[in-house]
Simulated assay, not measured.
Amino acid sequence: MTGNENCASKKELLQSINQVSFAINDLLLFLDTHPHEKRALEYFSELSARRNELLKKYAELHGPLTVDTANDSCLRSWQWMEQPFPWEQEGGCR
């Protein structure tokens, strides 16, 4: 895998995380007013599981984005703090 492929996959993974997170936030607003809507609750469960999968995959490849995935990817050290955060990188990837 070349650096460009890794960069594209990192950007694509971040985009997927952002899309799923947006959908979850939107769905939560709906559930605030429709708390017993079965289809919405099922969809929330699906999206939450998908988001957790994406966050775990991102943490394994590029370091954690949330504290929830820090334990999975940083058992040896806190080196992930030494890398630039996604929003600090010019052009998205190095």
Rank of each mutant, 00 (worst) to 15 (best):
M1A: 11
T2H: 09
T2E: 11
G3D: 06
N4S: 14
N4E: 13
N4M: 15
E5G: 00
C7E: 00
C7A: 12
A8S: 12
A8C: 10
S9G: 04
S9W: 01
K10R: 15
K10L: 07
K11T: 02
E12K: 12
L13T: 03
L14S: 04
L14P: 06
N18R: 12
N18G: 14
N18C: 09
N18A: 15
Q19E: 14
V20T: 14
V20H: 08
V20S: 08
S21I: 06
D26Q: 08
D26F: 04
L28Q: 13
L29N: 11
F30S: 13
F30L: 14
L31V: 10
L31H: 08
L31M: 05
L31I: 14
L31F: 09
D32N: 15
P35Q: 09
H36S: 14
E37Q: 12
E37D: 14
E37N: 12
K38C: 04
K38M: 14
K38H: 10
A40H: 04
A40V: 07
L41S: 06
L41C: 06
E42H: 10
Y43R: 11
F44M: 06
F44Q: 05
F44L: 12
S45G: 10
S45N: 13
L47D: 01
L47K: 15
L47M: 13
L47A: 13
A49Y: 10
N52K: 05
E53S: 14
L55H: 04
L55I: 01
L55P: 08
K57N: 10
A59T: 02
A59H: 04
E60F: 04
L61Q: 03
L61V: 02
H62P: 00
G63N: 03
P64F: 00
P64M: 02
P64H: 00
L65R: 01
V67G: 03
V67I: 11
D68T: 10
T69H: 08
T69E: 15
A70F: 07
A70M: 08
D72W: 09
D72E: 14
C74V: 00
L75W: 13
R76N: 07
S77V: 04
W78C: 04
W80Q: 02
M81S: 11
M81C: 05
P84F: 04
P84L: 09
F85I: 01
F85K: 01
W87N: 13
W87C: 07
W87H: 15
W87G: 03
E88S: 00
Q89L: 07
Q89I: 10
E90I: 15
E90M: 12
E90R: 15
E90Y: 13
G92T: 11
C93G: 03
C93L: 06
R94P: 02
